[in-house]
Amino acid sequence: MQNIAFLFPGQGSQRPGMGKDLVARHPELADRYYRPADDILGFGLSRLCWEGTAEDLVPTEITQPAVFLTSVAVLHVLHGHGITPSVVAGHSLGEYAALVAAGVLDWRDALRLVRRRGELMAQVNERTPGAMAAVIGPAAEQVERICAEVAGRTGAVVEVANYNDPAQHVVSGERDAVREVVAVARALGAERTVALGVGAPFHCRLMAAVEEEFGAELDRVEFREPRVPVLSAVTAGPVRDGAEARRVLRRQLAGAVRWADTLRAIAASGTDTFVEAGPGRALSGFVRATLPGAVCHPAGQARRIDRLVAAPAAA
């Protein structure tokens, strides 16, 4: 398959049973990834992925390594079918899988980082309970104005965390402030609002409290030069070397995810075919909303990979 982007999902894409069908079809995945992951982390992540309930997968320190590991398994299967990317990008947590796909990070190092990232984010939530909610309908500028008004009036932290597509923006911050933003957005005619089942207020300045500690974790890991072009969703621009990748991962803790701009940048390079390489289908929806006419293939399950392999573009 030529001129294709691999997109890697973030937290919120987790599903009970994720990866189980892939291992049934490709047993080598268990020995290559899942059992080593259990040993690295010191608990049965594979069991949680395959047999855990939705509630089991909610804690941030579980969700993040689970989504990451499933994405790495999907990447392995796609490569086995001869499907490789010409560019990669990841949504928040998905940037770790994207950097693995680009050869910047070893998957084992990335797994350890993802686990620690989840632990630190959970600690922030324990100190300052937060929330996230999707606001669907209003343009980014209106959602930004609502956040600024609520923050100014209450003194609380609430910001736009994700610019997912032209009509979906996620707000993040202290719980009451997020609820207030949602109420104001509804009163002003938002089509819909959705409270997100996440374990912390990601991508807002509350997360700045753990940047230094996580930066020390990043400094212990080897970052190599990209073998495949990789775009950062923090900057919507290219990650040119390993040092820049390290800086971006630190910055993304408290920085907004500029996903729609990232998709537009990929499209501007001449790519109009996308593969969602991980659990869920949220990123495929963002592609359709942001780039009408682009082709996107969800590939988080064996049957969906079968459809991708059979697609004419894969020939």
Results as ranks from 00 to 15, higher is better:
Leu113Met: 09
Arg115Leu: 09
Arg116Leu: 06
Arg117Lys: 07
Ala122Ile: 05
Ala122Asp: 01
Gln123Trp: 04
Val124Asn: 11
Glu126Lys: 09
Thr128Tyr: 09
Pro129Ser: 08
Gly130Gln: 03
Ala133Gly: 13
Ala133Ser: 14
Ala133Cys: 10
Ile136Asp: 04
Ile136His: 10
Gly137Glu: 04
Pro138Leu: 05
Ala139His: 14
Ala139Tyr: 04
Ala140Asn: 12
Glu141Trp: 02
Val143Ser: 08
Glu144Trp: 07
Arg145Asp: 14
Cys147His: 08
Cys147Gly: 05
Ala151His: 08
Ala151Ile: 01
Ala151Glu: 06
Gly155Glu: 02
Ala156Gln: 04
Ala156Cys: 09
Val157Gly: 08
Val158Cys: 11
Ala161Asn: 03
Ala161Thr: 14
Asn162Lys: 10
Tyr163Glu: 05
Tyr163Trp: 12
Asn164His: 03
Asn164Val: 06
Asp165Gly: 15
Pro166Val: 03
Pro166Asn: 13
Gln168Lys: 14
His169Ala: 04
His169Val: 03
Val171Met: 09
Ser172Leu: 06
Glu174Ser: 12
Arg175Gln: 11
Arg175Ser: 15
Asp176Ala: 13
Arg179Tyr: 10
Glu180Met: 00
Val182Asn: 03
Ala183Ile: 01
Val184Gly: 05
Val184Ser: 09
Ala185Asp: 04
Ala185Thr: 07
Ala187Asp: 15
Ala187Gly: 10
Leu188Pro: 10
Glu191Cys: 15
Glu191Asn: 15
Thr193Lys: 04
Val194Asp: 14
Val194Ile: 15
Ala195Pro: 15
Ala195Gly: 15
Leu196Asp: 07
Gly197Trp: 00
Val198Trp: 09
Val198Gln: 00
Gly199Lys: 05
Pro201Glu: 05
Phe202Pro: 00
Cys204Ile: 08
Arg205Cys: 13
Leu206Val: 00
Met207Trp: 02
Ala209Cys: 13
Val210Thr: 08
Val210Trp: 11
Glu211Cys: 00
Phe214Lys: 07
Glu217Gly: 05
Glu217Pro: 08
Leu218Trp: 12
Asp219Ser: 10
Asp219Cys: 05
Val221Met: 01
Glu222His: 15
Pro226Phe: 06
Pro226Ser: 04
Pro226Gln: 11
Arg227Met: 12
Arg227Asn: 00
Val228Gly: 04
Pro229Thr: 06
Pro229Cys: 11
Pro229Asp: 03
Leu231Ser: 03
Ala236Glu: 03
Pro238Phe: 07
Asp241Ala: 02
Ala245Asn: 13
Arg246Leu: 10
